[in-house]
Structure formats: C-alpha cells, structure tokens
Design a protein around this nucleic acid. Sequence first.
DNA 1: GGCATTAGATCGCACTGCGATCTATCTTAC
DNA 2: GTAAGATAGATCGCAGTGCGATCTAATGCC
Lengths: 148, 148
Amino acid sequence: MNIPSADRETIRNLARFRYSLRRFLRFSEKAARSRGVTPQQHQLLLGVAGFTEDGAATISELAEFLQERNNSVVGLVERAAQAGLVRRRNAALDRRQVVVTLTARGARILRHLSRLHRDEVERVRAGFGAAGGVRAQTTARSARKAEP
Amino acid sequence: MNIPSADRETIRNLARFRYSLRRFLRFSEKAARSRGVTPQQHQLLLGVAGFTEDGAATISELAEFLQERNNSVVGLVERAAQAGLVRRRNAALDRRQVVVTLTARGARILRHLSRLHRDEVERVRAGFGAAGGVRAQTTARSARKAEP
DNA sequence: GGCATTAGATCGCACTGCGATCTATCTTAC
DNA sequence: GTAAGATAGATCGCAGTGCGATCTAATGCC
C-alpha cells in the first residue's frame, strides 16, 4: 500500500469528513421517510421554497439546485406532483418554462422537516469546522479483533 | 403556501447548505469518474484506508462508514475487487470476518483523488462555517423572468 | 419568416442499495 | 462437549432513480 504519511493525514481527514457527511445524509433520509416522502422529494421541496427569492422555481433552476440533469428533475417533479406535494404551471412570460410551487401539504411537510434538520445541521457544521475531530464517530466504530 | 418568516429563514439556510453539499458531491463524483472509478468505489477506498487505524477494514466497518447495509457493501467490495482496487482476505482470528485492503492500484487512485479533494473540502468547510453566506451560488443561479 | 437556441418531455437502460433469506463461524450456558 | 443463540457475510430478486439520446414547443435574432 505504501502511502506517504502526508497523504495518510489527508486521507484520514477526508474519511472523517465523509463519514460525518454520510451520517448526516442518513439522518436526513430517515427524517424524510418518516414524514412519508422520499429523500429526493424532500430536496425538491427545499429547492422550490428556498433556492430562489420568490418561493418558486423552474425545472432548470431545480436542476441546478439538485445538480442533476433536467430530465431527471422532470420525473422527480412529476412524481411529487402526483403525490400532492407540488404544483406546476407554465410561466406566462416564457411559456417554455414550468414554474413549480408548493402545495399546502408540501409546505407543511417541508416546514416540519426543516425544523428537524436545523439542529442536526448545526452539529454537522461544528464537526466540519473543528480541525478534523468528530469524537462521537470513533465510539461508533465497531471493535475488530487485531490481525495476527 | 403561508410559511412563517422564522421558518423561511431556516429553509433558506438549509437550501444554501444543501446546494453547497450537492455541488461538492458533484465535484467529487466527477473527480472519481475522471480516474476511472465510480463514486462509490472511491468512498470504499477512502473507508478502507482512512476509517480505521491500520489501513484495513471489515465489511461491517465499511457498512458503518458508508452508512449502508452490509449486503450492499458485499456487492460493492466484490465489484471493486474485480476492478483490481481492493483485496479481500479472511481474518485469521475470526474467520467470519472479511478484511479488505487496498491494492497498489487502489492506493494510487485514492492518493490522487485525496489530493484533488483536499482543497475542495476546505472550500466547503469555509462555506459551512460562514453565517450562511456562500456567494458564488447566487451568481450560479440562472436568471428567470419575473412572474406577471 | 427562417434558423439557431433554449426549456421541458419521453423512452429505455443500467446501476445501486435494500429486504428477505441463507450459510458459516463464534459464544454462551448447561 | 454440545445445543441454542448471536454475529459476519453471501445470495437473490426487485424497485427506485438518474442518465444518455432524442424529440417537441416556444423564444430570440438577423
């Protein structure tokens, strides 16, 4: 394997960072499902309500927010619309554009999930800000018998 | 939609945070693919080399690191092994355990990717640490015509 | 008005993570 | 020692999801 110690240090830090990230995303995923929406739908709601100034977003804007291709977003919006989370309408000014807004139900779920996330994000931020130490993680690691 | 302004603030911050996250993950994904491995394989390499003290990890440890079920990890390791990125061997002490280590090729790729990621992570951390302002994002947002 | 551009939509596909289930190994109690 | 339970992985089939390729409709521009 022979990895130089400078790289080892970098790798160790990156691993901690990614582990922290995974745990956060996992938390978020469970939170979303606990409210009856998929993680992707939750992100969609967040993008619709929080990415722009006016609480509405086009497919392209959502694709930028989610960092996905717009055909992926089309499908996601379609399913979310069927689930009664968002509403679509054509922009009057440019009728190629599709403006997505939240339904009352979508807004309610987003509000609830956002409150749940607020605290957790602070924890993650604290972990990121620290010089590389997230203590709770080390304890979470399962003990493995030493190799002979 | 009627979302209270306190929630609006929270939602706005969460959206910024998630957008930053998505962009980072996107960057990471492209970096991995540019070196000929899938994003998941990259994370696997990182977990093997950086999650434990000894540069090796069992399936269960990797499942914890990746926050996935261990059957998912079994498949991931299988594919990575076939791609010549990692090696498996049974732990001598507890023969139920499977210890995963990096091949020379896996280590080389991980080293390269880690260097690429180091700077980017710092940028993300900076964005997280700031009181909620990631400026670059606003400019990246596509302009949408105002609704009439 | 005609041509390039842009915003979405449609289709089929491939990957990946999961639930359910199974086997092998280790641990504990008796 | 041995049977019962626990633990670590492996196997199988499936469903969700994001993507490439391609198409249509609306807009911009000269």
